[in-house]
Write a protein that binds this DNA or RNA. Structure first.
Length: 578
RNA sequence: GCCCACAUAGCUCAGUAGGUAGAGCACGUUCUUGGUAAGAACGGGGUCAUCAGUUCGAAUCUGAUUGUGGGCUCCA
């Protein structure tokens, strides 16, 4: 354990030291460079600079060369403690460093130098620059000073740094592997979806094969919700602006809303959320405590304005369909409902093969709706629910939304990248604004407890996620084409079509390759489309009345009967396995 | 939205001293009827993102716009 900590801090020192070396290299090329900060990060480091001209990728080789010289010179890193005045004097022409110094309360400040280069720094560092064994500058990017969009934009250079060349190469390979799984690339290769310049950025069109996957997920989702006594509803895409003024969305989320449209002299808004319609349905008549909890669920399509720079394939878009639900219950039922939502959430993400996840409980922020007591009770209830489900979680203090505490679940995909998954939010605000109540045993109206929750997030983002998670090799139950039927020659077409029909009768997605190419070529085509099951049918199979199977993995099951194949496939589909 | 880069055929990409576009794959036709990851020939297909400008002449140079990518910020 201690060794692990030592190793981590050593790697951190390597990365941080490399950042200093890069800062010296950049300073020597641009004597007027103003330095921002340069920390170690996962896999490497970055350093922010204010430079007289924009950097281009062509600048990186020169910086790299300079860095190699500095490393070769093997300059020792020397730490010194200096007084505040000395520091202010030392960095008098480095405005960003001065700002940092002024942010530090201590009277004694730590600096590190190697050769003539000095930086304000807590350390630790390597003994000398020569200890840096493997680094690679990767990208240049803009970054706001202190990460605040109102500050000036600095130029950031990102780099990788590892203890050895081998580890660096391994990491580079891993990044290449991730690029192969990028849902934008696979989305094109597998013909799953597209976004059109003509139509607008962030607006996704689902192609037939992508739509099959989505529909399969939706069917699964609906079945699960039916079983768990949710009521699935449908609501319109626009509603009067006034409704969003009442809810507070118009004030709080204006930046994310599209401009209102005028219909019959009345302003309407494209809906950014489904909750208000769900409240309308709840409020359509008086509700008794006897019918609670009411769980309204909808695959609801919403539209939000997202800044152009944040759009990303299918995972960050402007129109998307949430797997949304609003649960209306009594406060005494909150715990049980939360437990049930957690149960559903865990079941769904496990079904898609996600095993690792992190759970966060976000508590009251500075600005909030409701009372202290409501927050305290609801937060405790969420905690209790997590404990009942035996789910490890971290508390994220002050990170709750203004209207209530929430649970966020992030899960890791096959490449160990985290995706935002299920969220469960308690809402104190909307029930109050829309007077959402129920009649209790006492005949009095009581405020309802309202939970917003999604499990998959949005169909678009979830599709991006599973595409990358499976690397495009979707498990049989999700695969757009489950079986590619490959006749060896034209005379085997009739048999191939009969087999296709047998599979279709069982709702298996089978397609005959009727092209006149060779068997090899047909197999290659199916392999590239990542079709899980290929049937090769020729004279032998017709004579025996069987099929020969080539699985996507390359494994073979020759000469099996159609009944046996059906059983294998239908079992795989119903078990939702690969 | 901000910083930087990029934008050529459906896809992946060539095309630098500015002289009206090319490959592979895919697609179509024909030949081939093949046994587990590319059979062959021929063919169709591009106002080189859009709009201006410089020039006798622009895919190529300049500017603007749109879109995309990597970041920042943000987020389902």
């Amino acid at each position: 354990m201690n060794q692990e900590i030592d190793k981590n801090s050593e790697i951190e020192a390597i990365r941080h030291s490399t950042a200093h070396v890069m800062a010296e290299a950049v300073s020597s090329i641009f004597p007027d460079a103003k330095l921002g900060i340069g920390p170690a990060i996962e896999n490497g480091f970055y350093y922010d600079f204010d430079l007289p001209r924009p950097l281009t990728p062509d600048d990186l080789p020169a910086i790299t060369t300079k860095m190699k010289e500095i490393i070769k010179a093997n300059k020792p890193f020397i730490q010194k403690n200096i007084s505040r005045e000395q520091a202010l004097d030392l960095f008098h022409d480095q405005p960003y460093k001065l700002e940092l110094i002024n942010d530090i309360p201590d009277e004694t400040l730590s600096i590190y130098s190697h050769g003539n280069f000095v930086d304000l720094c807590r350390g630790p560092h390597l003994p000398s620059t020569g200890k840096i064994k493997a680094f690679k500058l990767t990208t240049i990017a803009g970054a706001y000073w202190k990460g605040c969009e109102h500050n000036s934009m600095l130029q950031r250079i990102y780099g990788l740094a590892f203890p050895s060349r081998l580890e660096l190469e391994e990491y580079v390979k891993k990044v290449e592997e991730a690029a192969k799984r990028d849902h934008r690339k696979l989305g094109k290769d597998l013909d799953l979806y597209s976004i059109y310049d003509e139509a607008g950025p962030g607006l996704v069109c689902w192609h037939p094969d992508g739509a099959v996957i989505r529909r399969t997920i939706e069917d699964f989702w609906k079945r699960e919700h039916d079983m768990r006594r949710y009521s699935i509803i449908y609501t319109p895409h626009i509603a009067k602006l006034n409704m969003w003024k009442t809810s507070g969305h118009w004030d709080f989320y204006r930046d994310y809303l599209y401009s209102p449209m005028v219909i019959d002299e009345e302003e309407y808004l494209l809906k950014p959320m489904n909750c208000l319609y769900h409240i309308l349905i709840y409020n359509s008549r008086k509700r008794s405590y006897r019918e609670l909890p009411l769980r309204f669920a909808e695959l609801g399509t919403v539209y939000r304005y997202e800044p152009s720079g944040t759009l990303h394939g299918m995972s960050r878009v402007r129109g998307f369909t949430q797997d949304d639900s609003h649960i209306f219950c009594r406060y005494s039922q909150l715990e049980k409902e939360t437990v049930q939502v957690l149960d559903l959430a865990m079941y769904m993400i496990n079904t898609f093969g996600f095993e690792k996840y992190q759970v966060k409980l976000s508590t009251r922020p500075e600005k909030f709706a409701g009372s202290d007591e409501m927050w305290q009770n609801a937060t405790d209830t969420l905690k209790k629910a997590l404990e009942i489900k035996n789910i490890a979680y971290e508390v994220d203090p002050g990170e709750g939304v203004f209207y209530g505490p929430k649970i966020d679940i992030k899960f890791e995909d096959a490449m160990n990248r985290a995706w935002q998954g299920p969220t469960i939010q308690v809402d104190f605000n909307l029930p109050q604004r829309f007077n959402v109540t129920y009649t209790g045993e006492d005949g009095q109206e009581h405020p309802v407890a309202m939970i917003h929750r999604t499990v998959l997030g949005s169909m678009e983002r979830f599709m991006a996620c599973i595409t990358e998670h499976y690397g495009g090799s979707f498990p049989v139950w999700l695969a757009p084409v489950q079986v590619q039927v490959i006749p060896v020659a034209d005379r085997h077409l009739d048999y191939a079509k009969k087999i296709e029909a047998d599979l279709r009768k069982e709702l298996l997605r089978a397609i005959v390759d009727t092209s006149s190419s060779t068997v090899n070529h047909k197999i290659r085509g199916a392999q590239m489309k990542k079709v899980p099951c290929m049937l090769i049918l020729g004279d032998k199979e017709i004579a025996a009345g069987t099929v020969s199977v080539r699985w996507r993995s390359g494994e073979q099951d020759n000469n099996i009967t159609i009944d046996k194949l059906l059983k294998i496939l239908l079992d795989t589909v119903s078990q939702q396995t690969s």
